[in-house]
Design a protein around this nucleic acid. Structure first.
Lengths: 229, 229
DNA sequence: TCACCGAATGACTGACCAGTCACCTTCCTT
DNA sequence: AAGGAAGGTGACTGGTCAGTCATTCGGTGA
């Protein structure tokens, strides 16, 4: 990570990384389309414009190593997204504004790079119920990273007395999970716009701003009617 | 459905149904353990104590038809669970109490029949991003059934002015999704109890009553601190 | 008792694919 | 320019598994 620019890389090494990146991008699109089990190395190689054997020069561990390398980039981007939204001074210290910004960015990210999210949603839940302990541990570690990226904001809010007295990790999990949930919900509805749905519901799904406001209100203030109104 | 007891079934027919049920039960356990892609008909047949060919006498569509038949039973049970919790007079008309009861029942159901939930979680999300429109539609239909099972309670609460003015379908989705989320969260933590976690957080996860109370508070009253306290 | 038929069976087929490796190409060094 | 190293390649292998079908089994009615 930190060694990226320590020493100027040789052309060899630069080319090697470029090729590796190309392979990862190809893998990304194939995994997203087919899901892990139906993705074939043949197709990944073809899209990356390499022979299948070449993949093994870059990823000794074969299909699985490629897959986890793709997952790593996804989680890196997500953690970065969370950290940036939370740290953005424009949102002040109001946890609602910060969460709202996070949701909007997450939806934009989904819009730009649908592939990545789809891989996560298709594979992550499967992995966390896998019987292979190392896979479960990987997933757990990545979840923890995301929660930790969100925690500073919650801690600050908590110190300001803005939060109910509940475990912060649990709140962080809930806030993150619900973003996934929202994206899934939007995706399902987008695929089949012909179902009967109230206009209000539809507009919440269509407009990222409204969706973010909806989720922020739901989670921070609850679905119960406010006492005064 | 309604014809189950219209005419007394012949012994032939009764036996046929019993065998079909046995096959579905076997399939359930194999799908839960291996996930759809790694489950083999060989193993399903073996656990059901039939030959592989026999499966095709009961499910012409092969593996996929068996899988959807299993999914059907899962969704039937879940809808039933929701409807029963919501209708239970013991919970009065307070939506919090009703939702709390639903969460407790869902956790108990998960405890009893972990297999079924695991199949759902492993496969349903994958399906809803599948490129096969009929699969997406199936998933959407089942989600809709669950939402509809929950809606009466929300409508009643809404008429009593107990709910914020938000689309009821969206609220229903949120309430249901968060039960899944809670179960996943518990499952992850249960697998690896050696991670650093606050005691408070741990006890929420371990005790179904506390977990249900936590989720009910979070979703109905929000994570923000109440104004007076 | 026998002939019949619906049901059960599992060896077999064809398709698929991860991973290997012997060969080829490209480019650097001397 | 020759020699060699580094890297690329895709035909091939071994294994897996869904789905088929010719055969066998067992219960039933004559």
């Amino acid at each position: 990570m930190a060694t990226d620019s320590d020493t100027p890389l040789s052309r060899r090494e630069r080319e090697r990384r470029t090729r590796r990146q190309a392979m990862l991008r190809a893998a990304e699109s194939v995994f997203a389309e087919k899901g892990y089990p139906h993705a074939t190395l043949e197709e990944i190689a073809e899209r990356a414009e390499f022979g299948k054997g070449t993949l093994y020069n870059y990823f000794e561990g074969g299909k699985e190593e490629i897959f986890f390398a793709v997952l790593d980039t996804i989680y890196d981007e997500l953690c970065d997204l969370i950290a940036r939204s939370v740290a953005d001074a424009a949102n002040g210290t109001d946890p609602r504004a910060r969460y709202h910004a996070l949701v909007v960015r997450a939806l934009a990210f989904y819009h730009d790079r649908e592939d990545l999210f789809v891989i996560l949603i298709k594979e992550a839940y499967r992995m966390c119920f896998s019987h292979d302990a190392s896979k479960v541990a990987y997933f757990q570690r990545q979840q923890e990273r995301m929660v930790n990226a969100l925690l500073p904001m919650l801690q600050q809010a908590d110190e300001n007395g803005a939060l109910r007295d509940l475990p912060l990790e649990a709140i962080a999990h809930l806030l993150i999970e619900n973003i996934d949930g929202l994206i899934v919900h939007r995706a399902i509805m987008a695929n089949h716009p012909d179902r009967p749905t109230s206009c209000q519901h539809q507009s919440i799904l269509d407009d990222p701003e409204k969706a973010a406001t909806f989720l922020t209100t739901m989670l921070f203030d609850g679905v119960a009617a406010p006492p005064s109104a």
